[in-house]
């Protein structure tokens, strides 16, 4: 399985990005890491280029909310990405938000898996579970 990952927007938080990279590799994924400070379009471009199965976006500084709203609109311009698994994790709101509100909102933006302030390994377990269920429904 191929995963494109990166930190969205002007966010420069590199630590989580490196750890996601390491952990995905440890779980056997092929990783294309766009690093920090990545625009939304770059994720989709990279997914098309690499034929990725998953886009894993991380965001630490709270600006994901702004970018999230544009996901459906931008993704719809790419014809081959209908089946791609969309995942986002990190701090998904500015300040303290309510997890019960956040998850449906981001699902509504077009994400399949939403991890707000969730431990990295738990998040990746969720991803593997999601993939398994999709393959053997």
């Amino acid at each position: 399985m191929k995963v494109v990952t990166g930190v969205v927007g002007n966010d420069i938080h590199v630590v989580a990005n490196r750890l996601i990279d390491l952990s995905l590799r440890a779980r056997g994924f092929d990783v294309f890491n766009l690093g920090v400070n990545t625009y939304l379009e770059e994720f989709f471009d990279a997914a098309v280029e690499t034929g990725a199965d998953v886009i894993l976006i991380s965001s630490l500084n709270g600006e994901a909310e702004g970018w999230g709203r544009e996901v459906r609109a931008i993704k719809s311009r790419y014809k081959t990405l209908d089946d791609i698994i969309m995942m986002i994790g990190g701090n998904l709101v500015v300040g303290s938000g309510n997890a019960e509100d956040i998850e449906p909102r981001y699902k509504n933006y077009g994400f399949d898996i939403v991890c707000h302030q969730i431990d990295l390994n738990t998040g990746l377990d969720m991803l593997e579970e999601f993939i398994k269920e999709r393959n053997n429904p």
């Binding site: 630590v15 750890l19 390491l22 952990s23 590799r25 440890a26 779980r27 990295l120 390994n121």
Partner: peptide
Amino acid sequence: KDTTSIVNDIVHDI
């Protein structure tokens, strides 16, 4: 340790 544990260690080490 496996890589998952090492990643946890790194998080802890930071």
